[in-house]
Simulated scan of single mutants.
Amino acid sequence: MSGENSSSFWTTLPGILTGLAALITAIGGIWLIYDQVVNDGNEPEIDNQGITGVDNPQVDDQGTTGEDEPVHQVTNGVIENSTEVTVDEPILSAPEQVSPADGTVFDEYPNEITLEWTEVPGATIYGVEVEVYLGYWGNVITSYVTTNSYTFSSPGTYPGRWRVWTVDSMDRKSEKSDWWGYSYTT
Rank of each mutant, 00 (worst) to 15 (best):
I33R: 07
Y34P: 10
Q58S: 13
N48R: 06
N39A: 15
P44L: 01
G66T: 01
D35C: 03
D47H: 01
T64G: 10
E45C: 14
D55G: 07
V74T: 10
V59R: 03
Q62M: 03
W31N: 09
I33W: 08
G53T: 15
N42M: 04
N48V: 06
G63V: 01
V74F: 10
T65S: 04
Q58N: 14
L32P: 11
G41N: 02
N39M: 15
G28V: 04
N48Y: 07
H72I: 14
Y34L: 10
H72T: 10
T52D: 09
V71C: 13
T65W: 00
D47M: 03
G53P: 14
I51S: 11
E43P: 12
Q49W: 14
V38E: 05
D40C: 13
I30M: 06
E45Q: 14
P57R: 01
G53M: 15
N48E: 00
T64W: 11
G63L: 06
T64S: 09
V37Q: 03
T52H: 08
L32K: 11
D40M: 12
N48L: 04
D60R: 13
V71L: 11
Q73Y: 09
V59S: 02
Q58W: 15
D55W: 05
Y34G: 08
I33N: 05
Q73A: 08
E69R: 14
V59M: 05
G41P: 01
G29D: 00
H72W: 12
T65P: 03
E43L: 07
G29L: 05
T52M: 07
W31K: 12
T75F: 01
V74L: 08
G41I: 02
G41L: 04
D60Y: 12
I46Y: 02
V54Q: 00
Y34M: 08
G50H: 07
D60T: 10
D60A: 10
V71Y: 11
N42G: 04
P44R: 05
Q49P: 14
P70E: 09
E69M: 12
G53E: 12
W31F: 13
D47A: 00
I30Q: 09
D47F: 01
Q62W: 09
I51N: 12
D35S: 04
G29A: 00
Q49E: 14
T65C: 00
W31Y: 14
N48T: 01
D55T: 08
N39W: 15
V38G: 05
G63C: 04
I46W: 02
D47P: 06
L32E: 08
V37N: 05
Q62K: 07
Y34V: 08
T64K: 14
N76V: 10
V37R: 07
T75G: 04
N76S: 08
N39I: 15
P57E: 00
E69V: 14
E45K: 13
Y34Q: 06
E43S: 07
G28R: 03
N39V: 15
I46Q: 05
D68W: 13
W31S: 10
D55H: 06
Q49G: 12
N76M: 07
I33P: 06
E45M: 13
G66C: 05
I30C: 08
I46N: 00
T65I: 02
D55E: 09
V38T: 02
I46L: 00
Q49K: 15
D60E: 10
D40H: 14
V38K: 00
P44M: 00
T52N: 11
D68M: 14
N42V: 07
G28N: 01
V37C: 04
P70W: 13
Y34F: 09
